[in-house]
Design a protein around this nucleic acid. Structure first.
Lengths: 136, 136
DNA sequence: TAAACATGTGACCAGCTGTTCAGAAGTAAA
DNA sequence: TTTACTTCTGAACAGCTGGTCACATGTTTA
């Protein structure tokens, strides 16, 4: 039903590998996001992949906070919190408001907010529904 | 309006740091997920934080695929793909079906599927709406 | 049986990540 | 002014991550 390796998929020229289901591969490749979009998406997920940063962002879900309070809540040193916030700021995930010597950070990315809400909802759900998952 | 440092927040004893807005800190801490839930959530995001794995999972969004096709689509060597899939399998994000010497992987986590759909939708949206974001 | 094939695995390694430390910068109070 | 305070920053470092390589495992075909 399918030709094993002699049919070529246009968008793929870097690989020497064989292809089993060429149609599926072509379809999947055609719907794959841009390299840049993919990197951006991976970066966003990467920002959420650290417990400290995750705590920072979850805290900001309830409104702006100053660095020292954020450090306490996220269980980070103030230096570590500052570094983390700098990273988040560089990616425009948070924004800062200065008031004297204080710096108040807030969430500034709707997509990230959505991801955080979703993650939060998921933990609450699975807590109640799946106290322990089992193999299929 | 608020006492600077002499009021104590119950759930926080590991930190010597000062607290500016004790009420907010207490509120945020009380709504913070469990340490375990937080680690799990960060892990899930971490799995999506690598372009290769992200491509693997986005490909699986359209149905099951064998390892060699996945490797091609994700632009990974077959060994790297196998390693990545092992990691994803260990976290129950994907499941495998064996057929002879082939191994067909599929997405097996509704939450991850949701996150992927959302990320995909977001890249498509922002592509059209925000060709370039600007500072607030 | 032997050979080809698809996948899985362990060891190793370059590069990245998150933290701490020491100190700088800027602000507010004394 | 000096002092205290809040945040920011660069350097250095340990630990993790993702990849390649060589090879093992198990399967199908000749």
């Amino acid at each position: 039903m399918r030709s094993p390796a002699d049919r070529q998929v246009s968008a793929i020229d870097h690989c020497t590998a064989r292809v089993v289901d060429a149609d599926r591969v072509a379809s999947v490749v055609s719907r794959m996001p841009t390299e840049a979009d993919l990197a951006d998406t991976a970066d966003v997920f990467g920002l959420l992949a650290d417990p400290g940063r995750l705590r920072l962002l979850l805290a900001l879900l309830q409104g702006e906070l100053c660095v020292c309070d954020l450090a306490v809540v996220a269980q980070l040193s103030e230096s570590a919190a500052s570094h983390a916030l700098r990273l988040l700021r560089a990616h425009r995930v948070v924004a800062v408001r200065r008031a004297g010597r204080m710096a108040y950070y807030r969430l500034d990315d709707a997509h990230v907010r959505l991801l955080l809400d979703l993650a939060l909802a998921h933990t609450e759900h699975t807590e109640a529904v799946h106290p322990e998952r089992e193999a299929p």
